[in-house]
Amino acid sequence: MSRSTSRGARAKVADGLVQALVWGTAGTVSAVFLCLVGDLLWHGLAGIDLDFLTQGVERTGRAGGIFPILVSTFLILAVCLAVSIPIGLLTAILLSEFSRRNPTLSRLVGASLDVLAGVPSIVFGLFGNAFFCIALGMGFSILSGGLTLSCMVLPIFIRSVELGLRAVPSDYRLAGAALGMSHTSMLLKILLPAGAPGIAAGLMLGVGRALAETAALMFTSGYADRMPSSLMDSGRALSLHIYDLTQVTGGRPNAYASGVVLVALLLVINLLASWTVEHIVGGRVQRV
């Protein structure tokens, strides 16, 4: 009897310890998050005004604003999306709708995308430098940077669109087939509209990844902080600007402010992404 109570007491102690550990960890994670965001906002918000967003970079970033940096960032993003959206959509359609008819190809594509998703960003940088900048002769340019990013973004975008298309109920497909619709019109009139949330979510995730990326751009789009005159011009992305500012003395205030701008952009995009994802999941649950 006494042994069983001592075992009971020990179990109670273990239970309490684990509970403390679990709450402690969760609390620490939240505290660190608040500290990170709080520090960024505290030091960064003061530096942001209209001038900061609309003026050119002066004294290698210590003074002036980030307007050319923002323009370069959006141009890199535009190149990245212009390439990855068509390729990604088509590949995702093959994976979700035609994988049974092309089993070997879909398996190979799936495996290669899994590997691509895991390639470290600095390796993308090496590849982009060797392939786009040198082999294809694009040099350090917004075009090279955007194309390198599109390689990075593709696996995320494709997986998300594929999931979105797979979530379209098969009744829709059967109904379309019963009406004698061709694959092409079924795709355009039924699947793509019905899978739109997945496409939107994939787009947001891809944009988020592209905006956050730094290492892959160091040796592809380069460091030039002036206003880019064309896509063949070098242009510095916002994330790279933050890194660069930590390397110059007196750059910290503007690094903080640029950090707030970057995190704010990403926050909006991530919220949009998780909202659309929940939208899809919600729709699926409702049907069951």
């Binding site: 990170l36 960024l40 988020g208 990326e213 730094t214 994330s239 890194y243 970057l262 995190v263 990403l266």
Partner: peptide
Amino acid sequence: GIPSVIYGFW
């Protein structure tokens, strides 16, 4: 969702 350059900076 926080980019690595922000983690590094922090």
